[in-house]
Design a binder for these strands. Structure first.
Lengths: 139, 139
DNA sequence: CATTATATAGAACAATTGTTCTGATGTCAA
DNA sequence: TTGACATCAGAACAATTGTTCTATATAATG
C-alpha cells in the first residue's frame, strides 16, 4: 500500500447559491480510515463524531500555531534557537552546551525572548506553545 | 444554524471482501467546512490534505492521551489533583493555596506522582502531557 | 560617524523546583 | 491488630530558573 492510499481524497461540492451552503466530501481510506474507526470504537463514538472533534481541535491548534509563528518572527535568530530548544524541554545548561555558549548568555536570550513574547517564564512559554501543538524538529 | 449542522455526517462504505479495503465518506459542512477551507487556503493546501494532517495528528494525540489517562489512574486522588493543577501551569505555592495545604505537602505529592509516572520533573510532565493535548478543565 | 540591533557574558540575589530525609495521623483490609 | 496506604508537613540542601544590573564586540543602517 502506497502512502497515497493513506491520504484522504476529497471532492468539493459547492451549491449554486451561497458560500454558507458549501460542503465537503472527504474520502478517507487506508490506514487512516482503520485507525479512525478503531479510535472511535474505543471511545464509543461514531467515526464521524470523532473526526469532527479531531478536526475542530486541530483547527484551533492551527490558529494558535499560526499566531505563535508570527510571534516567533519577532525574535532574533539566536533567540529563536533558544526558544526552540526550550520547547523541547532542555535546561539552560543543556542549551548552552548545544549552542556552545555560556549558560549566562542563554539566560539573556531567554529573558529577551520572553520579554518580546510578553511571557513571564519558560513554563508559560511551554504551556502556550505546546498547547498549540508546536514541537520543533530535532536538530 | 443548529449545532448539528456543524457536525460532519458520515456514510460508512464497506467493501465486500476484507477490512483493509474499508473506507469512509465524511460529509463536512457548515462552520467546520468553512474553517477547514480557510485554513487550507492559508496554508496553500487542499482541504483534503489539511484534513488528513489534522486527523493523523489528532489520532496520535488520542493515543498519547489514552496512555496518559491510564497513567493517571495509578495516582491517588490528591496526587491527581496536584498533577492537574501542575498541568495548568500553577506553581507549588499556588497549588498549596488552592488546596489549602502546605507547599511542602504539595512537593511531597508532586514527588510521589512523578515517581509513579517515571518522570523527573514537572517540566517533563508538562512536555509529555501537553503534547498529548491534555488540558484539564478549570476547577 | 552615530545609532541601533545582535550576540556574548558576568555578578548578585530571589524564587522555584528537586532530592533526601524524617515523622505524624487516619483509614482500611487481611 | 498489624501492615499497607494515603495524607499531611517539615528540615536541609542542591539545582534550576528568574530579575536586575553592567559590560564588551560586531554588524548593519541611517
Amino acid at each position: 500500500m502506497s502512502i497515497r492510499d493513506s491520504l484522504p481524497t476529497a471532492r468539493v461540492e459547492q451549491s449554486n447559491s451561497s458560500d454558507s451552503d458549501e460542503h465537503l466530501l472527504l474520502h478517507v481510506n487506508g490506514d487512516l480510515c482503520t485507525r479512525l474507526c478503531l479510535a472511535a470504537e474505543a471511545r464509543d463514538q461514531t467515526p464521524a463524531a470523532l473526526a469532527s472533534d479531531l478536526l475542530q481541535r486541530g483547527l484551533e491548534q492551527e490558529t494558535l500555531r499560526a499566531h505563535s509563528e508570527l510571534l516567533l518572527d519577532k525574535l532574533t535568530p539566536r533567540e529563536q534557537e533558544v526558544v526552540r530548544l526550550t520547547l523541547r524541554g532542555l535546561t539552560n545548561y543543556q542549551i548552552s552546551d548545544r549552542l556552545v555558549i555560556s549558560p549566562e548568555t542563554v539566560k539573556t536570550h531567554v529573558r529577551h525572548a520572553l520579554e518580546k513574547l510578553g511571557m513571564r517564564s519558560k513554563t508559560e512559554l511551554r504551556m502556550r506553545w505546546l498547547e498549540a501543538g508546536i514541537l520543533p524538529a530535532n536538530p
